Amino acid sequence: MLVHSTLDTPIGPFTVVVSRTGTVRAAGFTTDVAELMTLVHPALREPVGPGDPGEVGAAVVAYLGGDLTAIDAVGVEQHTAGAFMAQAWRVMRGIKPGAPVTYTGFAELSGRPAAIRGAASACARNPVALFTPCHRVLRTDGSLGGYRWGLHVKEWLLKHESVS
């Protein structure tokens, strides 16, 4: 069984869905667990109930407190049928706080420079926000682009990462 927990953050509630092994299967700035579970690949869906997120919760608190690398070691479980999407999510985890990249740069880092729309799709379909930091990918002109959880959240996260 998966467990979910909602943490209070300076930008609103943040909910994580964690497996028995302590890996994150879904995360986002919402209290709607059902909505989060729609982002999880069907092969990774299980019943979910409230519970203690353990070290995942502690990592989020540390991140919000200024330890921007605290979330880097948290394991995630993301599954997709496409090789590019899987590669893009792996690459996204390597984008460092305070060093956002453009969608074009992200496509290049992912090994397919022409796949700019694919890079944008990897961001949009990311089920584990914050841990796979899609908020660190920007438009070519430096503007924010989109963010499932709201542009105010993306802006806050980028500002938090740029000053710490």
Rank of each mutant, 00 (worst) to 15 (best):
R45Q: 15
S110I: 07
N126E: 14
R90N: 14
G82N: 13
D52C: 09
E77K: 03
P50E: 15
Q78R: 14
A114L: 10
A86P: 08
C134I: 01
M85Y: 06
T132N: 15
H135I: 12
T69W: 11
R93W: 05
G75S: 10
R136F: 07
A86R: 09
L109T: 02
P50S: 13
Y103H: 10
N126L: 11
G94R: 06
I95E: 09
G94I: 00
G118F: 00
H79Q: 15
G66M: 11
T132R: 05
F106C: 06
H135T: 12
L44I: 01
W89T: 08
F84Q: 04
P100H: 04
K96F: 01
R90Y: 03
L44C: 07
S110F: 05
G57N: 11
E55H: 06
T102A: 05
G66R: 01
G54W: 05
P47D: 13
L44R: 08
G57V: 10
A88Q: 05
P127N: 06
G111H: 04
R112S: 13
A120C: 05
V137I: 14
G65D: 15
P133S: 10
A124F: 02
T38N: 10
G65E: 13
G94D: 14
A115Q: 11
G54E: 14
A129M: 12
V48K: 02
W89P: 04
L44K: 03
D72W: 05
L138F: 01
G98Y: 02
A120F: 03
V74L: 06
H41D: 15
E77M: 10
K96I: 07
D52V: 01
G105R: 00
G51A: 08
G111A: 08
A107R: 00
V101A: 09
L138M: 10
G94T: 12
A99Q: 15
G105K: 00
G54C: 09
G118K: 00
R125K: 12
A129P: 02
A115C: 05
L130Y: 03
G105C: 04
F84W: 08
V74K: 02
G98Q: 08
G98C: 09
L130T: 04
K96T: 14
A70F: 07
G51T: 09
L109M: 15
A107W: 00
G49I: 01
T38G: 06
A58R: 13
V137S: 09
V76D: 09
P113C: 06
I95M: 04
A73D: 14
L39F: 06
R136T: 12
P100L: 11
T80M: 06
P42I: 00
R90K: 12
A122Q: 02
T38V: 08
A122L: 07
A58Q: 10
L39S: 10
